[in-house]
Write a protein that binds this DNA or RNA. Structure first.
Lengths: 371, 371
DNA sequence: AATCAGCTGTGTATCGATACACAGATATTC
DNA sequence: GAATATCTGTGTATCGATACACAGCTGATT
């Protein structure tokens, strides 16, 4: 197929012979340049150049030395999420910064949601793993655990032997929920997926809640049970919203919940339109990301609703678009968290340091400033 | 340091012994499951599970088989650009899609702009390279060439033995330049960096042009010579803009040029403010990206200039923000180009198919619709 | 003068798998 | 019924480097 003649790889032994030194001298010249004299190093470099030696074979090096120079990143989502989802992108920017500082390459393991994802993980030539939010029952987590390599899980799930980095999502959700639900009568929530099935649709907080409309989408009937979500982040935020609404004397069954399968404003806009119309139209919506909240904002604008007059609204993450939109939100630096995950994975921190709760704070803006 | 006892890796031979089969049977059970009987495969899986065997050692596998299951991506920029620059991100999304389809991991090689970048490239355990726009004289290109692996360069430079994918940037720049410079009297250009020095600042098209202000920033005096830029994309676009302005009877020395060191609206806004004020204030600006153009737009708004009344403006790439802003732009799908690069790299296309010119088209919007 | 440490160079064993070639058993063909 | 093809299992050589231990030499230390 290829027009290129398959060039045979030049070996270290050939370079050694050409340079008139031993193989080990060549090896040291590459791996530990300080270990050899300037003269020997020069001879090696010259011979390598002349023969077209590209440097030590990475596979052979890693077989013998046990190190690869790669940090593996596993997303619970399709590989393209790394570049399509703004939250993942910010997180990975932090991971990338630390990788660059360490001279480590960043390997994105190609998960696609299929069972073979497990094989992709075990085949990955890496020194450590960083895992982006995954469902409690995702077999990929067990595969990572089985490799015995250092691994840091961001957002969940928690596992013995794996480090864990996350914010107190429940407390944060309670805080922002208090703000957005204050004075509300018909609260709504725009949620991330509940579990690996990633079903989306609109329903309400409790089963058999005749007072609320059935809603659309493939979500199973019976309402949303926060405790049943297998994504830790989703679960904790739903619990927090529930707590906040309960503080006002409300009941979870009164809360309408829309579940988006992706973190996109487009999908959010569709569901928000549903939440904002009909006899049970929400007058307060807590969204699990700023992207989702911006979708709500678009739907509200189209419906002629004013924010915060006709609708209060909150997001999450304090993305670039949040401030211009006046969006109340939970600020947490995903970039910092990515950096922290990468550092923890690469530095082999002691167990005591390995589990980290990261900071968050509420940013109160006009979108919740009810008159 | 680590609290974890360094678990010794279980070897394939141990699994073979425990399963009562030969090593090769185990190897086949993993690498070519169809090669062994269901019964043997079951025995192997059971033994592997029992012993905690994580699967074949990736390094050993790659040493013997010559394949790694990794596609390497090299950015001419710092590694974090992969996730910070919107253009790079879209390109990589396409690369990632193809990787996922092939079950290949995506390895980002950690370049930081230092001389050791060359080592990072030769150390990378990959089967092929995709290279994102690099300067003609970047030593990283030679290092990639030396590996003898298939490599595809996006945007330049061109090299024997390396495939090349790019749009006809000069023609596209001419087309959009015609549009934005039509009826203009004081044209300006907002450019990407000219070379690896990445100097930024404001100057004009020709040396010793007394008619124009000296400008700010560390750019060398003497004006901008399009032909001297070592980034192919920058060079071709500058030439195209020059061609377009020449068609109106204008001279390149009359064109004011601002060079941004990064593709960010923030930096663009600063330089645009300079281009848009003073006795030589531009009334038409061609920007090399939509991000830069949006920075111009912000500066114009602050200065009370109307677009297109007081200023015509063009961008590049047709990003999401371009349409809402009414921005005339050159549309090209970086995502498709990323996918094409990855496919070319992974499929070992024949030489004839290896150089690809990608499609582009002009999208004319209100930002150039001069009354 | 004797001892010791540091620097530089070398040879060999080894990392953990897969390519390859071969052999026996079973199914298929004429 | 003989010849041939297919399926399954095995043993050995080998991929290309680095860890390790050792040796000679130089200069410093006492």
């Amino acid at each position: 197929m290829s027009g290129r003649t398959a060039r045979r790889r030049v070996t270290m032994a050939e370079v050694a012979r050409a340079a008139g030194v031993s193989v080990m001298t060549v090896s040291y010249a590459y791996g530990q340049p300080g270990r050899v004299s300037d003269e020997a190093r020069a001879k090696v470099r010259e011979a390598a150049e002349r023969l077209g030696y590209p440097g030590p074979h990475p596979g052979a090096r890693s077989l013998r030395s046990g190190r690869t120079g790669n940090l593996g990143v596993v997303l619970g989502e399709h590989l393209t999420y790394a570049f399509d989802d703004p939250q993942a992108t910010r997180f990975l920017s932090g991971v990338a910064q630390v990788c660059a500082d360490h001279g480590m390459a960043l390997t994105l393991v190609p998960v696609t949601g299929s069972p073979s994802d497990v094989d992709r993980v075990t085949e990955a030539a890496v020194d450590a793993f960083v895992v982006w939010t995954t469902a409690d029952d995702d077999p990929v987590i067990d595969a990572i655990s089985a490799t015995g390599l250092p691994a840091v899980v961001h957002g969940g799930p928690r596992r013995d032997g794996l480090s864990f980095v996350a914010a107190d999502d429940r407390a944060a959700a309670t805080a922002v929920g208090r703000e957005v639900f204050a004075g509300a009568r018909r609260p709504g929530v725009l949620s991330f997926p509940l579990d690996r099935a990633r079903l989306s649709g609109v329903t309400s907080g409790a089963p058999l809640n005749d007072a609320l409309p059935a809603g659309s989408g493939p979500l199973p009937p019976g309402g949303i049970d926060p405790d049943a979500s297998t994504f830790r982040v989703t679960r904790q935020r739903l619990r927090g919203y529930r707590d906040a609404w309960a503080e006002t004397g409300g009941d979870w069954s009164q809360v309408r919940v829309a579940v988006c399968s992706t973190n996109s404003a487009r999908e959010a806009e569709t569901f928000a339109a549903e939440l904002l119309t009909g006899p049970y139209a929400c007058d307060a919506i807590a969204a699990m990301s700023d992207e989702l909240a911006l979708g709500v904002l678009r739907a509200a604008t189209r419906l002629g609703l004013t924010v915060p007059g006709g609708l209060t609204l909150s997001g999450w993450d304090d993305s670039d678009a949040a401030a211009p939109a006046g969006l109340t939100t939970v600020a947490q630096s995903l970039r910092d968290q990515g950096a922290r995950c990468a550092r923890t994975a690469l530095d082999h921190l002691t167990p005591a340091d390995r589990d980290t709760e990261v900071a968050w704070h509420l940013i109160s803006r006009t979108s919740t400033r009810r008159a």
